[in-house]
């Protein structure tokens, strides 16, 4: 979100406080996994209060429960993620400094020439996929993806996507191609003004993260009709995926952890272990289900190839559309 990104970042020693406020359930907590360093800094490129930041701060509470180390979240925002990547890439590979990875760092690497790119980081483990959905306003007659496509065939479709270079834009463009319609895809700056345009009927639909549109969803001002995720969202299991609806477009907006190159295998193994344990934690499940995050574990071995493929696909898309050369 451009709005968020425009802001700034700060060092936050809050994680420590969050630990003190941990629920009493820590008493019967399982044996904590030993970790080679005492303090682990998780670096994010998002500013305090923005998507990745909120995600990390919640994650830290549960990391604390399973791992014998103190976790600190630091925001390092400059250069659309370039600064955070450089910082982690040049850190000592002992597991003390890790990066909260999301598609942003790949997009920045592809769109500009930062000092360090995603190739200078070692992908470690994936935790979640954001739930990307197609939403329409409550009064809209569009109930399914088919309705949407039919509408776009008869009239000029008006579709919204949050940011010009975003994955949401990519998904909308690919849906257009897959359905062979010529809808206008209008990109915005952040989800806020797009939401208003969906609510006031300027747009037929918007593509956005479930987390961002929750307020309107729960107030029943909008309806969600399908998700771009590979599988159905657990908390909304009766909503189909776009792929099920007959258009082969899948969007995986991942959230995981990456570190400097040459991490010892012992550390990547710990994270493989931790990621699975945390995702299975019943308390955490309650939290992430409420936010419609879809758990999506990928271990160290497959995560590298996954990121490489993601970057290759995104790069190919950007090249085919002429956004980069």
């Amino acid at each position: 979100m451009r709005l968020f990104r425009k802001q700034f970042s700060a060092l936050c020693a809050v994680a420590a406080i969050a630990v003190l406020a941990m629920p009493a359930s820590a008493q019967n907590a399982p044996q904590k996994i030993p970790y080679p360093v005492k303090v682990v800094t998780l670096v994010t490129h998002s500013s305090p209060g923005a998507g990745s930041d909120v995600f990390l701060r919640e994650l830290v509470r549960y990391l604390q429960k399973y791992v014998n180390a103190t976790f600190i979240v630091e925001n390092d925002e400059g250069g659309s993620g370039a600064k955070a990547v450089s910082r982690v890439a040049s850190a000592r590979p002992d597991g003390s400094m890790l990066y909260a990875s999301s598609p942003t760092y790949i997009l920045t690497s592809l769109l500009s020439k930062p000092a360090n790119t995603y190739r200078d980081l070692e992908p470690m483990a994936n935790f979640f996929t954001d739930s990307e959905v197609i939403y329409v306003r409550a009064e809209s007659s569009i109930k399914t993806v088919k309705d949407l496509i039919d509408r776009a065939k008869t009239t000029r479709g008006r579709w919204g996507a949050a940011n010009p270079g975003s994955l949401e834009r990519q998904a909308a463009e690919q849906l257009k191609i897959a359905a062979k319609v010529n809808a206008a895809v209008v990109s915005h700056e952040g989800g806020g003004d797009m939401m208003i345009n969906v609510l006031n009927g300027t747009l037929d639909m918007g593509v956005g993260e479930m987390e961002e549109i929750r307020a309107q969803y729960e107030a029943k001002k909008i309806r969600v009709i399908a998700t771009f995720n590979g599988e159905r969202i657990p908390a909304l299991s009766d909503m189909p995926t776009v792929k099920e609806s007959g258009y082969n477009v899948v969007l995986v907006k991942f959230r995981g952890i990456a570190g400097p190159k040459n991490l010892p295998p012992a550390i990547t193994k710990i994270w493989d272990d931790v990621a699975q344990k945390i995702l299975a934690d019943p308390d955490y499940q309650k939290v992430y289900n409420a936010e419609h995050l879809s758990p999506h574990f990928i271990g160290h071995e497959q995560y590298g190839p996954f990121i490489a493929k993601f970057a290759a696909d995104t790069g190919a898309y950007l090249k085919s559309t002429g956004v980069i050369r």
Binding site: R2, R5, K6, G78, G79, S80, G81, A82, T108, L111, S112, K113, P114, N163, P164, G165, S166, R169, S187, E189, G322, V323, I324
Partner: peptide
């Protein structure tokens, strides 16, 4: 970054300029 198409304008490859000048 161009607000509609997402291409970079006048950034000369500097990531610090992707979000524009405040």
């Amino acid at each position: 970054t161009d607000p509609i198409s997402g291409v970079s304008r006048f950034t000369f490859g500097a990531p610090d300029l992707l979000d524009g000048i405040a």
